[in-house]
């Protein structure tokens, strides 16, 4: 099997495995309120620090809450952060990138300088800065992470669009006197979406990572929420007595991140024209 074929096959396998696991986690997150064996927030002082057992798969925490139920419910936060922030950065970043590519001049200069400014702080610190002043909650974290990644989508979209605008088939459209909207819809977007989709896939991973890091630092959903980063942060002081309190959400987070990452890699190998050979059919 040649390299290209191998890449295709590996890509589709990564796509399938990653996709299945992500879909399973999404399904679990959706049905968790009915499916979870216990309440995610109810205290049971008699059962503090119970180790994993048949009744409590992942044990209980310092208030006697069932860690398994909390982890199940917590999946929603990670997914919301990952996909929500990605959606924000795509919805804002892609049009800005297109605008910058089409309107060379003032609009481009303004957008690109703003982008330069936003990437002149490392992501977590930009998130910290945005979240520092007002009381944190889930939605603010999602918006902050989304804003952090807007510049990346803007830059990518602009460079892809600029590259396409140089292509002869776009010149041909211009030679027909097509308007900007027609060129955008017919010539640019159909060719620009694969790299944008690939980047969006990557952004989901990074948004989950960044979002859970921010909640780990206390800048996400607040207790008694069962966001995984927050759960890990809270478990630190009991690491000797009840390691399962941190391990359960930690390993779940790892599983989700690995699955999303696999899915993204699979997408990349599928859609990246440099990786997939364009043979004659």
């Amino acid at each position: 099997m040649s390299g290209a074929a191998l890449g295709q096959w590996r890509g589709s396998r990564a796509l399938r495995i990653g996709g299945c696991v992500v879909a399973a986690i999404i399904a679990l997150a959706v049905i968790s309120p009915w499916f979870a064996p216990y309440s995610a927030v109810a205290f049971d002082v008699r059962l503090r620090f119970a180790p994993p057992s048949a009744a409590h798969f992942f044990g209980t925490d310092e208030f006697g809450r069932d860690v398994f139920s909390r982890v199940l419910v917590g999946a929603r936060y990670s997914l919301a952060m990952g996909f929500g922030a990605m959606a924000i950065s795509v919805i804002a970043g892609v049009p800005l990138g297109l605008l910058a590519a089409f309107h060379r001049g003032f609009a481009e200069a303004a957008i690109m300088r703003a982008v330069d400014l936003l990437i002149s702080l490392p992501p977590i610190l930009l998130g910290l800065l945005i979240l520092a002043v007002t009381p944190p909650n889930l939605w603010k974290t999602i918006v902050a992470v989304g804003i952090v990644y807007i510049p990346i989508l803007t830059r990518l979209t602009r460079s892809v669009a600029l590259g396409l605008l140089e292509e002869d088939f776009v010149q041909a459209a211009r030679a027909r006197g097509e308007g900007a909207v027609s060129i955008l819809a017919r010539e640019i977007l159909p060719n620009a979406w694969p790299p944008i989709i690939v980047e969006s896939g990557l952004r989901v991973t990074f948004a989950i990572l960044l979002g859970s890091s921010l909640s780990f630092l206390g800048l996400g959903p607040q207790p008694p929420s069962s966001e995984w980063g927050l759960m890990i942060a809270e478990s630190r002081q009991f690491i000797d007595r009840a390691p399962w309190m941190g391990l359960a959400p930690g390993l779940s987070l790892c599983a989700l991140l690995i699955a999303v990452n696999l899915f993204g890699e699979g997408l990349r190998e599928r859609l990246d024209p440099r990786l997939s050979g364009r043979g004659r059919a």
Partner: peptide, 29 residues
């Protein structure tokens, strides 16, 4: 490399503390 990229560093940190400090007592937490 894939594992190291996908898993958040704060979780690695917790694992490291758990193993090398809490269980093995080799290093300060």
């Amino acid at each position: 490399q894939f594992l190291f990229i996908a898993v958040p560093d704060f979780f690695w940190a917790i694992l490291a503390i758990l193993f090398f400090a809490a269980w093995l007592h080799w290093l300060p937490a």
